[in-house]
Design a protein around this nucleic acid. Sequence first.
DNA 1: ATAATAATAGTAACGATTATCATTATTGTT
DNA 2: AACAATAATGATAATCGTTACTATTATTAT
Lengths: 127, 127
Amino acid sequence: MNTSKHSRQRDAILEALRDTKAHPTADWVYEEVRKSIPNISLGTVYRNLAKLSDDNVIVKLGLGTGVEHFDGNPEPHYHVMCTECGAIDDIEAQPLNELNDWASKLFKGEIYKHSAIFFGKCEKCKK
Amino acid sequence: MNTSKHSRQRDAILEALRDTKAHPTADWVYEEVRKSIPNISLGTVYRNLAKLSDDNVIVKLGLGTGVEHFDGNPEPHYHVMCTECGAIDDIEAQPLNELNDWASKLFKGEIYKHSAIFFGKCEKCKK
DNA sequence: ATAATAATAGTAACGATTATCATTATTGTT
DNA sequence: AACAATAATGATAATCGTTACTATTATTAT
């Protein structure tokens, strides 16, 4: 049985995430949702982002920036981070699952997934 | 001109990192170096890890664990993290630079590098 | 030896995230 | 519609990894 209850805060958080392609941080989501629910608590944002990613509705991205980023699209895909402006874009393609086989041959254990981040200049910063 | 001065603390930190394959955290390095320099400061460990990675002598690894890991081997290579015990092992192979070309075709900007982490079970946890 | 200054130990401060807790909102049941 | 059970909230304190500060010490070139 699912013991979770509905909340408009959670709805607003999920909507905010789905309405952007920017892979934002918890703090960005907080500021965004505050526009419609001004007294929402930052703790509520963190709690729901954790719940939504536990439920695989969203994805928590550890991109090595020191801050967590969140993606409203749970379909597996790679990302590119611009080293000039920090923008995070999607690579619109299926992950290369054959890389797991490649790595398996070089490793004594068992491999079942991977993540990758590309670095470069986004269209804007490339000018 | 290089304005840096030698210190036995930095030597010990680098030696500790080079003597392990475990890709440890700053705190692990601190505990390790404390065995030979008991009153070393945690700040000194952080300061020198930052300096050494700025100088490309070691590598700071953002693996999405919420903590930074450090690698005494600055040659580019991939890593595998065990989802059971958290162990981080090397994939002993050159990175697949052709992935940058693959991703470039799917992205409007410019891509010049990437990082990847594999996930699975290490030899020990696989049993 | 001396002077200049990089590096240190110790500690305070910081930012992101998590935990606590009394109150409020949602839900299934009468 | 009122009720009880409890998930979720807002507010705030606590935690954790890391960075900044400062007076003192160690290294280096002269």
